[in-house]
Simulated assay, not measured.
Amino acid sequence: MTPLVSVVIPMTRYELELDEALLSVFQQKEHDYEIVLVNNHALPGVLSVAEKWHLKHPDRVRIVTEPIPGAVSARNKGILASRGEFIAFLDSDDRMKPDRLSLQLSAIRQDPDITLVGSWKDEISPDGEVIGKDSAPQIPRWASILFGKTERWQRDPFYEPQTSTFLIRASAIQKAGMFDSRFDPFWLEDTDFSFRMYEKGRVVIVPQSLVEYRVHPKADSIRRIFDFGLILKHDVFFSILKEKYYLKDNPDSRSAFLKLKSRWLRETGIKMLAYQNGERYGKELIQKSLALNPSDLQSWEAFLRSRFIRSFYPRAFGIKGPIDAVLPEYVDDAWVSNLFSLDR
């Protein structure tokens, strides 16, 4: 039988956490669902957990395999394998609260124009203890810069939900497309996807914590912040936004894109200062940021802090570090010059 909801859970690591995630789905008040587990190079112990649940509940739990590693490929495989009218995502180290599906289904059924429903979330520690409650999605700064003056934004701004809170109409995915493979293996794929849902309809947030989101150790978070892949994906996302909106239907688009470019150049420059060989490019990008938007006090602050001696990086920017890494070999003058380009 066709289920109402397909719960898609990509799995790679997190053996014990996957067991908790699956248990949380089986504790849902809404019972009309299937679970699609996506084997994305899962560790043997993770596969054992998945197979245990499949053998126990073969009518509800299915395992599919995606050989291409990455969050984009794994989630797209789960979407293609889903049979439900709605699709809910859950990362394998997160947990649902018992009324998640029922409350989100109630919300999305209120209006056929709603494409995606998110929710607030609680944060839990690596060992599963609650460390923060009722964290609400925020309006991303890039979106308010580009669209804050538009008529749509004034009545219905975009609040970006966390991926494990997504409940989506399968029909909306057909219209807007799946996760963009340019973001594989990860970084900003969820931002791009949820914003495309916003472009095609309404993104609604249930003002209640319905998911427990696992926060990993701070050292891991710092490494993620300075992952060079994040810079690359920001450049991809900037190109996508430029193609859709630059100098189109909005008289303020040029100034808005220059402000966004300034902001992302500044943030990228600060990150580059943390690399062993990134000082020259970091300073250059911060200076370009200031030239693009000389009224931005944050850029002035970054410019002044970048004048500190090298031993102060990245502590001068309030970031604990530094990271033990060098810039990729392809980063040269031409690459830096073309970052967040509005010309190409």
Score class of each variant (00 low, 15 high):
residue 28 Q to V: 04
residue 43 L to Q: 10
residue 144 S to C: 11
residue 48 S to P: 04
residue 224 R to M: 11
residue 105 L to R: 01
residue 172 A to P: 01
residue 96 M to D: 00
residue 312 F to H: 06
residue 283 K to P: 02
residue 35 I to P: 01
residue 255 S to V: 09
residue 90 L to R: 07
residue 210 L to N: 01
residue 307 R to S: 14
residue 8 V to D: 02
residue 91 D to L: 09
residue 57 H to N: 12
residue 228 F to A: 01
residue 74 A to P: 00
residue 323 I to P: 03
residue 115 T to R: 07
residue 177 G to V: 05
residue 168 I to L: 14
residue 30 E to W: 07
residue 212 E to Q: 11
residue 34 E to V: 06
residue 293 N to H: 12
residue 137 P to V: 05
residue 56 K to W: 04
residue 317 F to A: 04
residue 257 F to C: 07
residue 257 F to D: 02
residue 333 D to A: 14
residue 71 A to P: 00
residue 20 E to P: 02
residue 247 L to H: 09
residue 21 A to W: 05
residue 106 S to G: 09
residue 187 W to F: 15
residue 216 H to R: 14
residue 212 E to V: 04
residue 161 P to E: 05
residue 87 I to D: 01
residue 212 E to I: 09
residue 208 Q to R: 15
residue 204 V to A: 06
residue 140 P to K: 09
residue 69 P to K: 02
residue 251 P to R: 13
residue 12 T to N: 14
residue 224 R to Q: 12
residue 316 A to W: 04
residue 235 D to G: 13
residue 165 T to I: 08
residue 184 D to H: 10
residue 153 W to C: 10
residue 64 V to L: 05
residue 263 R to F: 13
residue 313 Y to F: 13
residue 39 N to H: 11
residue 29 K to E: 13
residue 129 E to L: 11
residue 341 S to K: 05
residue 205 I to W: 00
residue 261 K to C: 05
residue 82 S to P: 08
residue 110 Q to L: 14
residue 137 P to Q: 05
residue 261 K to M: 15
residue 260 L to D: 00
residue 245 Y to R: 12
residue 205 I to D: 13
residue 181 S to A: 15
residue 33 Y to A: 10
residue 107 A to H: 07
residue 246 Y to F: 09
residue 3 P to Y: 02
residue 14 Y to I: 03
residue 10 P to T: 06
residue 162 Q to C: 06
residue 96 M to T: 12
residue 170 A to M: 04
residue 286 I to C: 05
residue 235 D to Y: 06
residue 168 I to D: 00
residue 199 E to Q: 14
residue 4 L to I: 13
residue 132 G to L: 00
residue 207 P to H: 03
residue 260 L to S: 04
residue 16 L to H: 14
residue 218 K to P: 03
residue 293 N to E: 01
residue 196 R to W: 00
residue 249 D to V: 07
residue 123 E to V: 01
residue 302 A to E: 01
residue 83 R to W: 12
residue 80 L to R: 13
residue 181 S to G: 07
residue 32 D to H: 13
residue 320 K to L: 12
residue 112 P to S: 11
residue 336 V to P: 06
residue 237 F to H: 06
residue 15 E to H: 14
residue 293 N to K: 12
residue 283 K to Y: 02
residue 277 N to K: 09
residue 149 K to T: 09
residue 106 S to P: 00
residue 23 L to P: 02
residue 28 Q to T: 08
residue 220 D to A: 10
residue 146 L to D: 00
residue 274 A to G: 15
residue 308 F to A: 15
residue 176 A to T: 06
residue 94 D to M: 03
residue 259 K to F: 00
residue 274 A to F: 06
residue 43 L to D: 06
residue 123 E to R: 06
residue 306 S to Y: 01
residue 172 A to E: 02
residue 173 I to W: 01
residue 299 S to L: 07
residue 335 W to V: 10
residue 202 R to H: 08
residue 268 T to P: 03
residue 344 R to G: 14
residue 184 D to C: 15
residue 97 K to L: 15
residue 306 S to K: 05
residue 11 M to P: 00
residue 110 Q to G: 05
residue 92 S to N: 08
residue 237 F to A: 10
residue 12 T to Q: 11
residue 86 F to Q: 04
residue 81 A to M: 03
residue 279 E to I: 02
residue 322 P to S: 05
